[in-house]
Amino acid sequence: MPDPFEPRIVAFFCNWCTYLAADLAGTSRLKYAPNVRVVRLMCSGRVDPQFVLNAFARGADGVLIGGCHPGDCHYQEGNYKALRRFHLLKRLLREMGIEEERIRLEWISASEGDKVRSVINDMVEKVRALGPFTARVTEDRVLEEVTA
């Protein structure tokens, strides 16, 4: 009997807000699903859409981006750029057949440890319901014998 599907979610957290909020969730011993792997960046503005695409291409089932609330970016405006890129990226991903729930942008400030918990739990459940992400172009799929 195969193991039940456990989503693998890659998260890009900004150092000053979301990463600290996740630390706070830790010091407060809040509990949440173990499916997320965090990549620490200085600012959500550093999130290059290529990172998100690479994560999916390598087998992530979902990608979460965490940054400071609009107006509160430690570097003033990085999160606005992240928001714009996210908008275009989401549209692109939708056209590529990737469901909206797999890519998520959340504004989480340093004191919102509980939000980290609830966002992660929520996203894990939503992605679990969607099932594994299989746009990995496996070699055998491509070479599949064609029967027109």
């Binding site: 859409p49 290529q50 998100v52 690479n54 928001l83 714009r84 890129r85 275009l88 990226l89 692109l92």
Partner: peptide, 18 residues
């Protein structure tokens, strides 16, 4: 690595509000 990803990142940098 990915032309489309970078191109959209660049366009997002020149247009769009807050």
């Amino acid at each position: 690595k990915d032309f489309g990803g970078k191109a959209l990142s660049a366009m997002a940098s020149v247009a769009g509000g807050k």
